[in-house]
Amino acid sequence: ITGDVSAANKDAIRKQMDAAASKGDVETYRKLKAKLKGIR
């Protein structure tokens, strides 16, 4: 179950990262990237 949750989280975070990148929001992008590392 835990694996599914983190996989879903990663997917959601990647989508947020894409949105931040397209807006040029480097700050948010970095925060999300750090979150991704924390999940692993």
Rank of each mutant, 00 (worst) to 15 (best):
I1S: 09
I1Y: 11
I1G: 11
I1Q: 10
I1P: 08
I1V: 10
T2Y: 10
T2P: 07
T2N: 11
T2L: 08
T2F: 12
T2G: 11
T2Q: 10
G3S: 07
G3C: 15
G3D: 10
G3M: 10
G3E: 10
G3K: 09
G3W: 03
D4I: 10
D4W: 03
D4N: 10
D4F: 05
D4P: 08
D4S: 08
V5Q: 09
V5K: 10
V5L: 12
V5T: 09
V5S: 11
V5H: 09
V5R: 11
S6P: 08
S6K: 10
S6L: 12
S6I: 11
S6T: 11
S6W: 02
A7D: 10
A7Q: 11
A7L: 10
A7Y: 08
A7V: 08
A7K: 10
A8L: 10
A8P: 10
A8G: 09
A8V: 09
N9A: 12
N9M: 14
N9V: 14
N9F: 14
N9L: 15
N9W: 15
N9G: 07
K10Q: 12
K10Y: 15
K10W: 14
K10N: 08
K10A: 14
K10H: 13
K10G: 07
D11R: 13
D11N: 10
D11Q: 10
D11W: 00
D11M: 08
D11L: 06
A12W: 14
A12H: 07
A12T: 13
A12K: 07
A12S: 12
A12N: 08
A12L: 12
A12G: 05
I13G: 00
I13F: 02
I13C: 00
I13L: 08
I13D: 01
I13V: 04
I13M: 03
R14T: 05
R14L: 13
R14V: 05
R14M: 08
R14Q: 08
R14I: 09
K15Y: 04
K15I: 07
K15D: 04
K15G: 04
K15F: 04
Q16L: 14
Q16S: 04
Q16F: 05
Q16M: 14
Q16N: 03
Q16H: 03
M17F: 01
M17C: 13
M17T: 01
M17V: 01
M17K: 02
M17P: 02
M17L: 04
M17Y: 01
D18T: 09
D18S: 07
D18A: 15
D18I: 15
D18G: 04
A19D: 12
A19G: 02
A19V: 13
A19M: 11
A20L: 02
A20C: 04
A20W: 00
A20S: 02
A20D: 00
A20R: 00
A20M: 02
A21T: 03
A21S: 05
A21K: 14
A21E: 04
A21L: 15
S22V: 09
S22N: 08
S22Y: 03
S22F: 04
S22P: 00
K23Q: 08
K23H: 05
K23E: 06
K23A: 12
K23G: 04
K23P: 00
K23N: 06
G24D: 03
G24N: 04
G24T: 01
G24F: 04
G24L: 02
G24Y: 02
G24I: 03
G24M: 05
G24K: 04
D25I: 00
D25Q: 00
V26W: 15
V26M: 15
V26I: 13
V26A: 08
E27S: 04
E27D: 09
E27T: 03
E27W: 00
E27R: 05
E27H: 03
E27L: 02
E27N: 04
T28K: 06
T28S: 07
T28I: 04
T28A: 13
T28P: 00
T28E: 15
T28C: 15
T28G: 06
Y29H: 09
Y29W: 06
Y29Q: 07
Y29S: 07
Y29M: 09
Y29P: 04
R30W: 06
R30P: 13
K31W: 02
K31H: 05
K31Q: 05
K31V: 00
K31L: 02
K31M: 04
K31C: 15
K31I: 04
K31P: 00
L32A: 01
L32V: 01
L32M: 03
L32Y: 03
L32G: 03
L32D: 02
L32R: 02
K33H: 07
K33L: 15
K33D: 05
K33Y: 07
K33C: 15
K33R: 07
K33S: 04
K33A: 10
K33T: 02
K33G: 01
A34K: 08
A34Y: 01
A34V: 04
A34D: 11
A34L: 06
A34T: 05
K35F: 13
K35W: 08
K35R: 06
K35Q: 11
L36S: 01
L36W: 02
L36I: 04
L36K: 02
L36D: 01
K37A: 14
K37W: 00
K37L: 10
K37D: 15
K37Q: 12
G38W: 08
G38Y: 08
G38I: 06
G38L: 06
I39T: 06
I39E: 06
I39V: 07
I39L: 13
I39K: 05
I39W: 06
I39D: 06
I39N: 06
R40C: 15
R40F: 14
R40H: 10
R40V: 14
R40G: 13
R40L: 15
R40P: 10
